[in-house]
Computed example of a mutant assay.
Amino acid sequence: MQISLELTLTPLQDNFEIHIINFIKKLRTSSFEVLENPLSTQIFGPYDEVMAFVTEEIKVAFGEMEHVLVYMKMVKSNRSSYEPHF
């Protein structure tokens, strides 16, 4: 099963930029398709592999910060090639 996952990491502390940058760099090292925009990062691929990878990277990020939020949206399909037709 393919999924599209959108993540937003929100550290609730000073010096937050480096934590966001490190998180995005780790996501980029994956074998999945990763798209970025100013508000979030999107990852596309097989459910089990994407979720295992993301779960581990969120755990690492949580270990590096005292207060942090992660917002996640998930769609059951790979929407990486989506183009609006309106």
Rank of each mutant, 00 (worst) to 15 (best):
V54W: 01
S31K: 14
F53Y: 13
V54N: 03
Y47I: 08
P38E: 09
I43S: 01
F32W: 06
P46K: 14
S31R: 13
P46T: 14
T55R: 14
F53E: 00
G45K: 06
G45Q: 05
F32G: 00
A52F: 09
S31L: 12
P38C: 09
T55W: 10
E49G: 08
M51F: 11
T41W: 04
F32E: 04
V50C: 02
S40T: 08
M51Y: 09
L35Q: 15
S31M: 12
F53I: 05
Q42M: 11
K59W: 12
A52C: 09
F32P: 01
Y47A: 11
N37C: 10
E49T: 01
E57S: 02
E57T: 04
F44N: 06
V50G: 01
I58Y: 02
P38G: 08
F44I: 05
P46G: 13
L35N: 11
V60I: 15
P46C: 13
S40Q: 08
M51H: 06
N37M: 08
V50S: 00
F32C: 03
F44G: 02
Q42E: 13
Q42G: 03
F32R: 04
Y47K: 10
I43F: 00
I43P: 08
Y47V: 08
E36I: 10
F53R: 02
T55H: 14
Y47L: 12
P38R: 09
E56P: 00
A52S: 15
F53V: 03
N37R: 07
K59T: 15
V50W: 01
F44C: 03
D48Q: 14
V50F: 00
S40F: 06
L35E: 12
F53A: 05
E57F: 03
M51N: 07
A61L: 04
P38D: 10
G45M: 05
V50P: 03
K59F: 13
V60F: 12
M51S: 07
M51C: 09
K59H: 15
V54C: 05
Q42R: 11
E33W: 06
G45F: 04
E36T: 14
A61N: 01
F53N: 00
S40M: 09
I58D: 01
F32A: 04
L39D: 08
Q42H: 12
V60P: 04
D48E: 15
A52L: 13
L39F: 15
V50Y: 00
L39S: 10
P46R: 14
D48K: 11
I58K: 05
N37Y: 07
E57M: 07
I58N: 05
E49H: 10
N37T: 11
L35M: 14
F32Q: 01
V54D: 02
V60H: 12
S31G: 12
E33C: 10
E56S: 08
G45C: 06
L39I: 14
S40D: 05
L35R: 13
V60Y: 12
E49V: 06
F32M: 00
A61T: 08
E33P: 07
V54Q: 01
I58T: 08
A61E: 03
F53P: 06
F53K: 00
I43E: 01
N37E: 10
E33I: 12
V54S: 04
Y47E: 10
F44P: 00
